[in-house]
Design a protein around this nucleic acid. Structure first.
Lengths: 350, 350
DNA sequence: CTGTTAGCGCTTTCAT
DNA sequence: ATGAAAGCGCTAACAG
């Protein structure tokens, strides 16, 4: 190995960036850089003796691989962008948490992107994150701009679409049947004997949160099939919150004092409603029954405890990540489509 | 432009990766690749005529820069890792949200990392994310392994430490004065006339959440200075939740039936307590006063509404991101240390 | 099992 | 204002 003479051409290094490179390790261990690379990435293809020497050198030098360089050379940077509509909605956070935990354990990092429910922003964001040569991508929903779908299909790497379920996805799909959820709660309300049932949600008018609208459609079909008035719909445009739940509750009560039950698009709204009922001294479910969707832990602590349709959000994230990892590791997942399911949790509010 | 003859050497391209490169754009526009690079990154250094031609080519070809290649060449990938202790704690999520929104607007992407409150994992995670040649880093807290601090200082790029405040930080610091928060609520409770005051929290015994412990210390000092029994402390090891709040509430009540006020380490616990009190038919604050910390919106909807110390969590994220951007854009921030402040929100629970 | 060679796609440096 | 050449740190491809 050549010993650099003093005055030798300085390597072009980045400002303040004097990190140890694979070459330094190779020199220290007396092997070629590629051997270090192999020892690190596919240890089984390097003899035990060399491997040990290399590990030693890595240790003493404190070598940390430059993933950018690796990514450029091999494409695939062990980065997984996760594109969600919003970071202020707890549901997505919990899914992301499941994804992150699973991926980080396997040595992948999550790159966060949010679209604010705007498919054009989604398309732009995708362009941008694909610039990182990610190993795979997790997207929210099955509805995208045509260009997004085209680009992703041509891309040829693992793509998981989460949250909802459909026959045709880009690559892999894990989610729940939203219409089924809506129908499930509606059926429960009917079984309980309620007939004047309203659905209350947010942003369902726009393309904004079409998944809530799907739940509403499921709800409506069940009521219609039962010959019950099914168009009792109250909605606000702002994002869901306890406050909006409270307002929706009061408005619906005012508009239809004969209401027997309220089916809320999610637990945040339903919680706001129960809390408002508490404050007004109204009895739930005697005066008005309240049902939700999600299964937030808060629901158990309310009085009365909230009846809701529980979906395993964290697990949905874990499942999505597992699917991705399976494909990444060459294990073709048996099911490129996972129905994560849901469960009706009947408590006292209905 | 040279027309490649059939049979020309195929470029080594990655599987399915047939993205448009800067060279394609250059050829299309009839300029050198470096000119395209300039037109994109420093438009003012390229003549209007060429710029237009290049923009045109970018448009028709649908060119999207490979940030990995750019990152390797220039170091700095427009990625900002954000390292937090946990993704299941809403506070961090809200801070991340603020960071993400601010950074995304400026063309940077957030890389998510969580340490589970383990400083060794933090050190390992840092090594890993530094491998992405990030443009800057946002870390939680001021306490790190010595190696972490050393590495980050030597690194020479913007680092923001968030959540708490201290005299000595690695580079920049934005957060709140935890002891001050604890003292603030303690003072309020004393002013209200309460004397038998307990502090209830989670994970304060370990290094796990030392920020909660700092709040406790602030609380204790105020009580001690007032000559009031200051060692009434109840704690659990599990992470905060409504359920743990409920348990803590019941246990404290059992252990010290003479308690007049409870100072909870956060609003989740305090909410669990109020909800438990509601269920038991206990009056708050007549039977027992309850104070929290955070300023979660839920607090307003409880009956009674929760008295709490509100901290602008989203804004803390925004501020951290702004500091980072300022340095990144060469504008040296006036204050490398921002006290984000807090506010006592007095409502009916005390 | 190990090494040599040639880039990945971009930006730096240095000419012009 | 524009371009040519070199190389960022790593790995794929192909020897041996």
């Amino acid at each position: 190995m050549a010993i650099d003479k003093a005055g030798v051409r300085e390597r072009r290094r980045h400002r303040g960036d004097n990190r140890v490179t694979i070459e330094d390790v190779a020199r220290q261990a007396g092997v070629a850089p590629i051997t270090v690379s192999r020892a690190l990435n596919t240890p089984e293809r390097v003899s035990a003796r060399l491997r040990e020497r290399i590990d030693q050198a890595v240790e003493t030098l404190g070598y940390v691989p430059n993933l950018i360089a690796g990514g450029l050379a091999s494409a695939g940077t062990r980065v997984i962008p996760v594109v969600v509509p919003s970071l202020s909605i707890l549901t997505f956070i919990e899914v992301i948490h499941g994804i992150q935990q699973t991926l980080e354990g396997a040595g992948y990092q999550v790159l966060l992107g949010s679209t604010d429910f705007d498919l054009d922003r989604e398309a732009a964001l995708l362009d941008s994150v694909l610039g990182y040569s990610p190993s795979g991508v997790i997207m929210t929903g099955l509805r995208h701009r045509e260009s997004t779908v085209r680009r992703l299909k041509a891309w040829g790497r693992p793509v998981v679409e989460i949250m909802e379920l459909g026959e045709s996805c880009i690559d892999m799909n894990v989610g729940i049947d939203n219409a089924g959820v809506g129908a499930c709660m509606a059926r429960h309300l009917l079984e309980r004997g309620y007939r004047r049932i309203a659905f209350l949600g947010t942003g369902m008018g726009m393309a904004r949160d079409y998944r809530a609208r799907e739940r509403y459609e499921g709800h409506r079909e069940v009521l219609a099939a039962a010959g019950v008035e099914s168009e009792l719909l109250f909605q606000h445009d702002e994002p869901s919150s306890y406050e909006v739940g409270r307002q929706l509750f009061l408005e619906a009560l005012e508009a239809r004092p004969d209401l027997e039950a309220m089916h809320f698009a999610n637990d945040n709204l339903a919680t706001g409603a129960i809390l408002a009922a508490n404050r007004r001294g109204m009895r739930v479910p005697e005066d008005i029954a309240i049902g939700g969707y999600l299964g937030l832990s808060l629901g158990e602590h309310l009085t009365p405890r909230l009846t809701t349709v529980t979906v395993p959000r964290f697990e949905m994230g874990v499942e999505a990540a597992k699917l991705l990892l399976a494909r990444l590791e060459g294990r073709l997942p048996a099911l490129p489509r996972v129905d994560i399911g849901y469960e009706l949790t009947v408590r006292e509010s209905t």
